[in-house]
Amino acid sequence: MSTLMQWAESLEQSALGEAIGSSRYAFPLIEGTHLIGLSVAVGLLFITDLRLMGLLLKKVPVYTVLTQLRPWILGGFAVIVVSGLLLFVSEASTMLAAPTFALKFVFILLAAANAAYFEFIIAHKEKIQNNPVIMPRKVVFAGATSLVLWSLVIICGRLIPYIPNW
């Protein structure tokens, strides 16, 4: 654990970490960028999930929603990853010490596993390309799981400053 903390502190003391840490505006601006990326990526993902669950955009074929929103979701995620890394570099030890930071990544991994299972197994098996009116239960379940997991990611992320230690 101490080696991990030493690495975290060395990250904070790096040129990039110090540049972000010493600037009055850098950290909040990067946080703002993280929030906007989140709104685009996770926001459009929520819309996709709600479509899978049959609660939104019912007239739009599922396959159309999936394929057309995907590039924007991935683009948003690219913004989240870059801004998230910059935030981490400037406050690595604080983040590693926070339990909800670790929990956030557990939920991200679970959400990624759910997305991979949906994309590579369910989406092919259930032939959602044919756009049935009522989605198979597995599809509805995958959408609901994604919605819950990404909500937990957001909750954990926002809790980081409020629960700083284990």
């Binding site: 685009v40 909500s151 926002r158």
Partner: peptide, 18 residues
């Protein structure tokens, strides 16, 4: 309250972006 605030903003923006 902060979590509700951020979640509300994300819902609002996702709708706007779409």
């Amino acid at each position: 309250l902060q979590i509700v605030h951020v979640s509300g903003f994300i819902l609002l923006l996702s709708s706007l972006v779409l």
